[in-house]
Design a protein around this nucleic acid. Sequence first.
DNA 1: CGTTTCTTTCAGTACAGACTGAATATACAG
DNA 2: CTGTATATTCAGTCTGTACTGAAAGAAACG
Lengths: 174, 174
Amino acid sequence: MAELTGVQKQYILHWGEMGTRWGINRTVAQIHALLYLSPKALPAEEIAETLSVARSNVSTSIRELETWGIVRAVHVLGDRREHYESMKDVWEMFRLVIEQRKRREIDPTREMLRRCLADLDPKEPGADYTRERLGAMAGFFEAVTELHDQMKQVPTGTVRKLLRMGTKVRKKAG
Amino acid sequence: MAELTGVQKQYILHWGEMGTRWGINRTVAQIHALLYLSPKALPAEEIAETLSVARSNVSTSIRELETWGIVRAVHVLGDRREHYESMKDVWEMFRLVIEQRKRREIDPTREMLRRCLADLDPKEPGADYTRERLGAMAGFFEAVTELHDQMKQVPTGTVRKLLRMGTKVRKKAG
DNA sequence: CGTTTCTTTCAGTACAGACTGAATATACAG
DNA sequence: CTGTATATTCAGTCTGTACTGAAAGAAACG
């Protein structure tokens, strides 16, 4: 993977762009794309060269990918350097990312909504309306959490089954 | 809504912060939060004052919220200014946002993956592996699209039903 | 029409976060 | 130990996006 083919470049650049739109660092996303396409684990040095970014930038970005659990370091016999490889199971990868983001963003929001509802002084102007709106939003986040907890326990293979069930429900409702 | 209560401030600030983490402009998110909590439609001027941002910034941000379909302008008798109000149905709001983001981000990614698979020259080094990886990723995006199309047609009330079905599937699988 | 009120556009500025490269730390071999 | 290879940290710089304020543009009145 010293030289990138046209298709690989296309994928990596798009993935980086996509990352920025979802609040994920462009370099982090690009490195992930590169590792995902690579049949073998790559040392940081090679990643830096291939993507034309600073070696230190790779170090930080790999750390981030590791905390998400979608990239890990492996060792190669006769080479002292760490080599990094990406998880290949796409569903599992997204599940992990979603789980992390839930923990970092959904959970704190849920917490904030609870605190708001608790802090809400019934005597302040429009308290009833505020409570109603905050309550609706809190309900949404509760449901999302419930949905996520269930998803966590559904094995990858079952996802397609769920998809088909969705179709049935739709037909009944329609 | 001339003065914000402590709880309102808390909600608006958190929502703005949350926005930035998902690639949504902080001001856009804050304005949405403000309108969501407001029992009556607000003129741009008042939004600008309440949030301490430039009047022009409000104009641009409202436009963005309007293209998502979660905020609309309404007219108040005896007032020439446009007043803006947020949709209150939380599920519907998120459905709209997800739909837009799918169109802007998921669809182009799906397209890119198709193009990559089409452009892939079988003679280039590691073509088989690349095809395998791109194929897996493409499959994921196809499934996500399918899931989204179904969701679009499920009425809000049915969502909780789906949640319960998820539980059943999990129990069978477990 | 001219005036007033409100809205949008846009060129310039400010700022947050990404990125770099030098310095530092760590691991290993001889 | 000493020297070398690799990894990490961090202060400073750079860049892209958000934001501002002034100016232009619409719309509503008299």
